[in-house]
Write a protein that binds this DNA or RNA. Structure first.
Lengths: 151, 151
DNA sequence: CCTTGACCTAAAGTGAGGTTTAGCAATTAC
DNA sequence: GTAATTGCTAAACCTCACTTTAGGTCAAGG
């Protein structure tokens, strides 16, 4: 019934599970660009459902919103993104995820070798290896992946 | 030269690589309890080097400061923690880390099965599996933290 | 027509994990 | 003994990813 057609922000929220406020926030961050109907309300394309899906998944992978925006900005401008576009971006995830798993796995190996000694020594403990610390600190999310180790 | 002996906050910062402000912040959060010298300056035990080491490592594992404090609070009160104390705490890390690696690995498996289709569909994409989303807590949006989409 | 519910904006609040600033005191180096 | 460094506190500020609030507008139903 919407005269100008397109999805309202509430419809988008219902279908993605996102809060309306979050969607507006994403717009402010440039992740989506709805147009406005005659009354000034936001109207979204169906492709925005997929863009928001992308955002949600990318967040699970530990990407920040600016990083996600950078990926989205590489989508074709003039047309609705197609399967091939999304597949290419998805493939980019895999490298990032592989790297993260690798980092965690190495961390675990060092932990394994440390449990025996209980040292946690600044001088000698393998857990302090600075090279790998740099990989995870920096700007990235610290809570990298799922948290809640017991709480 | 320190009359009352013990490490100054600057010395601790130098030896851990932490900022002085961070160390004071950790004290405010109850992670360390320096005493004060005659002039009111903080003085730290050598064991605090290890406590801070613990904090830094635990952060790499994705623990929050309150969680880290909870672990530290289980250290013996009256005496300087020994190797066995630290080894026990280190062992606790392993479970958390194993779980995190497992979560990421499952995420990657689903991604692998998705790259071929490029769908990212809300209805059918395996990446949306809510069961595992719930397992993922972080600073992220709340719907990942227990809010069921379409609940 | 009128009410209800969805929508609008701007600004402030939240919480984690800090850093920066301002103004002053204590220590250390020469 | 004086200057430079280091330390002190309280409070403000920062980023990230949002939510909440306040005050008003738009759209749909009876």
């Amino acid at each position: 019934m919407a005269v100008n057609d397109g999805l309202s922000i509430g419809a988008l929220a219902d279908r993605t599970g996102l809060a309306v406020s979050a969607i507006r926030y994403y717009e402010a961050q440039g992740l989506i660009r709805p147009w406005r109907n005659a009354g000034g309300q936001r109207r979204f394309e169906r492709a925005d459902l997929r863009r928001l899906s992308f955002v949600m998944i990318a967040q699970q992978f530990g990407f920040t919103l600016p990083q996600i925006k950078a990926e989205l900005d590489r989508l074709p401008g003039g047309r609705t993104p197609n399967k091939a576009d999304w597949a290419q971006i998805s493939a980019g995830f895999k490298a990032a995820l592989d790297q993260r798993i690798d980092t965690m796995t190495k961390l675990r190996e060092r932990l394994d070798s440390c449990i025996g000694c209980g040292c946690l020594s600044l001088d000698s403990c393998a857990l302090y290896n600075p090279a790998d610390r740099a990989a995870d600190r920096g700007q990235g999310p610290r809570y990298l992946m799922g948290d809640t180790p017991e709480g």
